[in-house]
C-alpha cells in the first residue's frame, strides 16, 4: 500500500499530463518575460528621466505593482477589468497582462539600477576621450549595464515561473489542477497519491527553476 501511490504517476498518460500542466505556466512566464524585457528597458530609461512628472508616475506605478500581491493584481485583471470594460478576458490573457505589467516594473527597476550604478567619472572620461553622447551610450554604458543586467534578468525569469503558479487560483488548468484531477480520479485505489503527485510537482518546479538560478549565479560571479 505504501509504495502504491507512486504508481499513479506512471499510469496511462498521467505524467505527461502533469508536464503539459507545467507547460501552461511555463508558457505564460516565457511570454511574459520576453515581453517584459523590452518594455522594462524602456521603462527603466523612462525612470532615469529628470522630469518630476515622469518620476512621480513611474514611482507610483512601480510601488503599486510591487506592494500589491500578484494574486490581487490577477484578481483585478481577471474579475475586475472583465466587468468594468466589458472585455471578456480569458484567464490566460489576464495572466499574461498581469505578469507583463509586473515584469515590466521589476525589469524597469533593474535597468534603472544598472544605469545609475555607472559612476559619473565613466561619462567624464568618455567625453574627455572625445566621444559623443551616443557613442558613450553604445560603447560605455550599454556593455557595463549588460553585465549587471543579464544575471538579474535570468533571475527574474525564475521569479516569474514561481509566480505564474498562482494562475490556478483564477481557475486555470495547470499542473496543480491536473494533479488534483489525477488524485481525485484515483482517490479510492491510491489514497496516498496526493503525497506523490504534489511531491512530483514540487520537484518539477524545482527542476524548472534551479538550473536557471545556477546560471544566473555563475554569470553574476564571472562578471562581477
Amino acid at each position: 500500500m505504501q509504495d502504491s501511490g507512486i504508481s499513479v504517476l506512471f499510469m496511462g498518460s498521467n505524467f505527461l499530463r502533469l508536464l503539459e500542466g507545467l507547460w501552461v505556466t511555463l508558457r505564460i512566464s516565457l511570454i511574459a518575460v520576453i515581453l517584459s524585457i523590452p518594455l522594462g528597458i524602456l521603462f527603466g530609461m523612462f525612470m532615469t528621466l529628470k522630469n518630476p512628472i515622469s518620476k512621480a508616475v513611474s514611482r507610483v506605478y512601480l510601488e503599486f505593482i510591487r506592494i500589491m500581491p500578484q494574486l490581487v493584481l490577477l484578481f483585478i485583471a481577471y474579475f475586475g477589468v472583465t466587468r468594468a470594460f466589458g472585455w471578456n478576458l480569458s484567464a490566460d490573457a489576464s495572466a499574461i497582462i498581469v505578469f507583463v505589467l509586473w515584469g515590466t516594473a521589476e525589469m524597469g527597476d533593474l535597468v534603472r539600477g544598472a544605469l545609475i550604478s555607472i559612476p559619473k567619472h565613466q561619462y567624464d572620461s568618455a567625453s574627455a576621450l572625445g566621444m559623443t553622447k551616443i557613442q558613450t551610450f553604445i560603447y560605455v554604458v550599454v556593455p557595463q549595464t549588460m553585465r549587471r543586467l543579464i544575471p538579474l534578468t535570468i533571475n527574474l525569469t525564475t521569479r516569474m515561473i514561481k509566480t505564474t503558479s498562482l494562475v490556478v487560483l483564477i481557475g486555470m488548468t495547470e499542473v496543480l489542477k491536473v494533479g488534483k484531477q489525477i488524485i481525485d480520479a484515483n482517490r479510492f485505489e491510491y489514497p496516498t497519491a496526493a503525497l506523490w503527485i504534489y511531491g512530483v510537482i514540487f520537484l518539477l518546479y524545482f527542476l524548472a527553476c534551479w538550473p536557471i538560478s545556477i546560471l544566473a549565479k555563475k554569470l553574476e560571479k564571472r562578471w562581477r
Binding site: G5, T158, I161, K162, T163, S165, L166, V168, L169, L176, G179, I183, P191, T192, A193, A194, L195, W196, I197, Y198, G199, I201, F202, Y205, F206, C209, W210, S213
Partner: peptide, 23 residues
C-alpha cells in the same frame, strides 16, 4: 536554501497541506 528559493510557495503549501497527511 536552493529548494526553498526555487519552488513556489503555493506548491510548497499544497505539498504540506494535501501531501504530508498521507504519511
Amino acid at each position: 536554501i536552493e529548494i526553498s528559493r526555487n519552488t513556489p510557495l503555493l506548491v510548497q503549501l499544497f505539498f504540506l497541506y494535501f501531501g504530508l497527511p498521507k504519511i
